[in-house]
Design a protein around this nucleic acid. Structure first.
Lengths: 345, 345
DNA sequence: CTGAAAGCGCTTACAG
DNA sequence: CTGAAAGCGCTTACAG
């Protein structure tokens, strides 16, 4: 099998402590012995086993990311932000997928119990406070993205505000009858986005019509799918009095909604939520979440906490930006993707 | 800190060996002692450290996936396939991202050197044979997806055949002047797809016009981006004699190409390559890669090899399927996503 | 600068 | 069925 530190020590005629020092850049080794050790190690193809190092050091130098396994640009962008930031630190990023259809708590528990990571960044997993509470037993830092829980550092986007902004924009453009395409109605993002939608209508003195708030039948991925959006928009367009504009709870649903409008040969202005990569190319107006920044910030928070376990818990809420494109009124010219966002602590 | 096996042994009045046996479902423990141990463990919040177990057992029970960090549905689908399959086995799936812009070999080397996984599944990383060769020193099973190298098990799709099929279809529909939107010209997938495109033209007795084979200027992600596709299609449409149909090397570029056609107010039939999730919703004809199956198969191959290191190396090549939608001629009705594919060993 | 020794938290023959 | 002991492959005070 692969050689161990003992093999190198024997061959090089030194103790294992010295070999260890050579591989840990410890300065207290003669240049001569260092070179001897390195030569032997190279000959035998030796490299320290991270597993054994981690056990001895009681540090794995790994930050674990827990993310639902669904084809979702949101996660990819967030992960890219983490990847970009982790380079600044001496940690590796390890990702574990969880299945959104199964019990999320037990999956997260399983991963954390194994203890590979020194800290855990959890993306888009929504649990009850009492469930998050249970995870404290592992006594390890956790940062939550796209979720709020007072016991951990969190990073999220203000869904209420985003929905309010999108809806208000459509109202300002002169629309009075506004539909909303929802995903799973009791999911956290939807609850907030419906709230923002309602408030915008109320503030504009428009009556909220419950028939205008619809979701599709396909509840895979909590309804955040093209087909759900397709179904939902089809329902809206089949109403006796269809809306004359629509706010979609997610870009992925908006994509389905656009197809539905095409198939029904009935187009109305729509605004989505997310700003996925393809959104620009289908000309979809949307509320942009600063995904890349959220990922980068998560790493910073995690590393900070790893270095100082007792620092204050912080909650960062980003405001989504309205990005106007061809799918909605008020659009003027090509809109470059906006990579900035202001954290609103 | 968190309790160890010693704490439990002391409190329960047994040896650490017994505690270990209880947690390893070893049958040789009295029901009474088992319960005592479990009770104490529960009280103290004990759970075995995977790190220590792995070291002692010389097995981590982890399969590591190495995947480029780019927002790409292809990877997500492949990962989903792995996730679905891994449930059948007693392994955890751990993912490490690599940056496609940096040195891929050294990144893969870094990950494998650490030795967390018992085996490594590498997706869409293209190296020279001599580079793959270097990785054999880790003496650990490797399965390659979307790449071919004789020394490891591989799973890929026949790009030449796919390009040939797509191009031939356009020819059969009566088009004689065919453009091709490429990504990075010397990237492996592009080399093959251009080859298939050329062969189809040649077999149909059509002269290949080099001016018809174009790529955009944006070479991020090797050119597999919407903006590259946009630029490439713009070039084609700006030719003195634009093509009257086009094969796009990837769906993501096709999305950009569609926008370019809209902006130029000049639509021609196009066929993409991949069948990403959004493709159905933008009505894009494409060559479908059986991504989910590829992921599932990778797990099977890996587990098989883990159990029998000396089994023969296998190379599986899938044939992509032509999926016709509104973007190309020959389309008849709604096309359900085709989840099946025939492995062609 | 270098080595002997204890320790990281488990598993697993080997006895009994 | 249970325990004592060696071992997994390292790191790190502590001496010298």
């Amino acid at each position: 099998m692969n050689p161990t530190i003992y093999d190198i020590a024997r061959e090089a005629g030194v103790s294992i402590a010295t070999v260890s020092r050579v591989f840990n850049d410890s300065s207290c080794v003669t240049r001569k012995t260092r070179e001897k050790v390195l030569a032997v190690a190279n000959d035998l193809g030796y490299h320290p086993r991270a597993l054994a190092q981690s056990l001895a050091r009681k540090k794995t130098k790994i930050i674990t990311v827990i993310v639902p396994v669904i084809s979702n640009y949101f996660f990819m962008e967030v992960l890219a932000g983490m990847q970009g930031k982790i380079a600044d630190y001496d940690y590796d990023l390890q990702i574990f997928n969880v299945k959104i259809a199964d019990n999320l708590l037990s999956q997260a528990d399983h991963i954390m119990k194994r203890g590979w990571g020194e800290g855990y960044i959890v993306i888009s997993v929504h649990l009850e406070d009492s469930e998050w509470q249970l995870l404290h037993k592992y006594n390890v830092p956790v940062v939550l993205i796209d979720e709020y829980y007072s016991g951990y550092d969190t990073i999220s986007v203000d869904s209420i505000e985003g929905a309010y902004t999108a809806t208000s924009h459509l109202i300002e453009q002169g629309h009075r009858s506004l539909g909303m395409v929802c995903a799973k109605l009791d999911s956290k993002p939807i609850v907030d986005r419906v709230l923002g939608y309602r408030r915008a209508l109320e503030d504009a003195g428009i009556m909220v019509d419950p028939a205008m708030i619809v979701t599709g039948d396909d509840m895979e991925r909590d309804g955040f799918t093209e087909s759900n959006g397709y179904e939902a928009m089809s329902k809206l367009l089949s109403l006796e009095k269809p809306p004359d504009a629509c706010f979609c709870a997610s870009d992925i649903q908006a994509l389905g909604a656009i197809k539905a409008m095409r198939d029904h040969n009935h187009r109305i202005p729509i605004i989505g939520f997310d700003d996925l990569e393809f959104s620009e190319y289908v000309g979809l107006s949307t509320m942009r979440q600063p995904m890349y920044e959220m990922g980068a910030l998560a790493i910073e928070k995690m590393v900070g906490r790893l270095e100082d376990k007792d620092s204050d818990i912080t909650h960062t809420v980003f405001s989504p930006d309205l990005i106007l494109r061809a799918s909605s009124p008020g659009y003027a010219g090509f809109n470059k993707r906006n990579k900035r966002a202001v954290p609103a602590e």
